[in-house]
Amino acid sequence: MSIPTPSDPAAVAVELEKLRGTMETGFAKVDGSLALLAQRGDQTDRIIDDHEKRLDTLERARWPLPSIAALVGVIGLALTLWQISQK
């Protein structure tokens, strides 16, 4: 079997077939990489959503603390005034 000359149409067809195979392999690698990136993006979105929920829960649980501190301060002032008035 001899190597066809570049001017031979069969040689062009063979080279095009090799190029096609190379392109298919490259596209398969790119598709795999894109699928992996999409999966990682989805995982990141889920993690961010989870963190947002946890942060919202912490923020809701934190709001009464300043109110409780103010209430304790007012009660302490009232008790002090009451003790001073008893003397």
Results as ranks from 00 to 15, higher is better:
V72W: 01
R60E: 13
L34R: 00
V30L: 09
A38S: 13
A10R: 04
D31E: 15
V30I: 12
I84S: 02
P64Y: 01
G73D: 15
L65K: 00
A78S: 14
A38D: 14
Q39N: 14
R20T: 14
A10C: 09
K87C: 15
R20A: 11
L71W: 00
A10G: 12
L77S: 15
D8C: 11
L58E: 11
L36F: 05
Q43D: 15
L16I: 01
L77N: 10
P4I: 08
D49H: 06
L36S: 13
L79Y: 08
E59P: 07
L34E: 08
R46Q: 07
K29M: 13
I75V: 14
F27H: 08
K53S: 07
T22D: 15
L55R: 04
W63G: 09
E24G: 05
T57S: 14
T22A: 14
M23I: 03
P6Y: 01
E52D: 11
R60L: 02
V12Y: 01
R60M: 03
A78P: 11
E15R: 02
A28Q: 09
V12S: 04
L58Q: 06
R62D: 06
L79N: 11
T57E: 15
L36D: 15
L81R: 00
S67D: 13
A35R: 01
L34F: 01
E24R: 00
A35Y: 00
L65Y: 08
R62E: 06
R40E: 15
L65V: 12
D42I: 05
I68V: 11
A38E: 10
L37D: 05
M23V: 02
S85H: 02
M23K: 01
I47A: 14
L16H: 03
S2I: 02
T5A: 14
A69G: 06
G76Q: 09
A10D: 10
L65W: 03
P9A: 04
I3V: 05
E52S: 07
R60T: 13
I48D: 08
L71Y: 00
F27V: 13
A13I: 02
P64Q: 05
A38I: 09
A13N: 06
R40P: 14
F27I: 07
S85F: 04
R40F: 02
Q39P: 13
V12F: 01
L65N: 08
Q86R: 09
L37R: 03
V74W: 02
L81N: 08
M23T: 08
E15N: 07
A78V: 05
Q43T: 12
W63V: 12
H51G: 11
S2N: 12
T44R: 10
G73I: 06
S7P: 06
P6A: 02
D49R: 03
S7K: 00
I3Y: 03
E15G: 12
G41I: 00
L16R: 00
A35E: 09
T44K: 10
M23L: 04
L81G: 14
V72D: 05
R54Q: 13
L36V: 10
P4G: 14
D42V: 07
D31C: 12
A35Q: 09
R62G: 08
K18E: 15
